[in-house]
Design a protein around this nucleic acid. Structure first.
Length: 210
DNA sequence: CGAATTTGACCAGCGC
DNA sequence: GCGCTGGTCAAATTCG
């Protein structure tokens, strides 16, 4: 099953980009997670993050284009390891993606992606329909954690949403699992910048009457 | 009235 | 074994 990632409701043209492996050795010169100047201002709520196995999910169609793994926020993907992490930091957002698997045996289809972003609303419109099934106050945090499950029949993707205990203006969202269906209202695509080699991911909401 | 949300109870994992 | 914590369940409640 192909990794599907976490599509977000995004305005057309808004993009997030990820640094290529070849750059980023200097943390002070790390690429910020913003759109290029030519693109409309990047809204953090539009950010899309994918699981590392097939990093860029692209068009979200039945046969997404193959995009080479390139995420490296301080460590490279280790093909000999069934556990890898992706960490990207910028001033406004932190992303962590994780794939877990069982040593030796078949790989467990568990994909976990967490990111922290500045948002007034806790529940983002990511194009999927979520059903809340739990709320829990967590240790060391004054803010409760909300638990959501994808309401699409047969889809077991879950997400946890909580406000950052240090800065309540930030929302920490953790997605777990892979959607086995397409988002009902969003089309996704990726492009690669020929100069920098970076991959751009964008979501475009399909007009209701199209 | 059906669907979604709320919320207390319950369960499992982990550390001591 | 016990208590703490995080995650899930499910009945009650609210909402559209």
């Amino acid at each position: 099953m192909a990794a599907v990632g976490v599509p977000f409701h995004a305005k057309a043209g808004n993009m997030a980009h990820f640094p290529s492996r070849s750059q980023g050795s200097s943390s002070s010169n790390s690429t910020p997670l913003h759109a290029d100047a030519a693109a409309p201002a990047f809204d953090l709520s539009d950010f899309i993050m994918f699981d590392q196995a097939e990093f860029a999910p692209s068009s979200f169609g039945p046969e997404p284009p193959v995009v080479p793994p390139m995420v490296d926020g301080g460590r490279s993907n280790d093909q000999n390891s069934n556990l890898s992490n992706i960490t990207i930091n910028s001033g406004d957002m932190t992303v962590n993606a994780r794939n877990t698997g069982v040593e030796g045996e078949r790989r467990e289809e568990t994909s976990r992606i967490a990111f922290r972003m500045k948002s007034e609303v806790e529940v983002l419109n990511d194009g999927f329909k979520w059903r809340k099934y739990g709320k829990k106050s967590v240790k060391n945090s004054p803010n409760p954690r909300n638990y959501y499950r994808c309401s699409t029949e047969g889809c077991s993707v879950k997400k946890r949403v909580e406000r950052d205990r240090e800065d309540p203006s930030y929302v920490i969202t953790t997605y777990e699992g892979i959607h086995n269906h397409m988002s009902p209202g969003v089309v996704y695509y990726t492009t690669q910048d020929s100069v920098s080699g970076r991959y751009y991911v964008a979501g475009c909401q399909v007009p209701p009457d199209s």
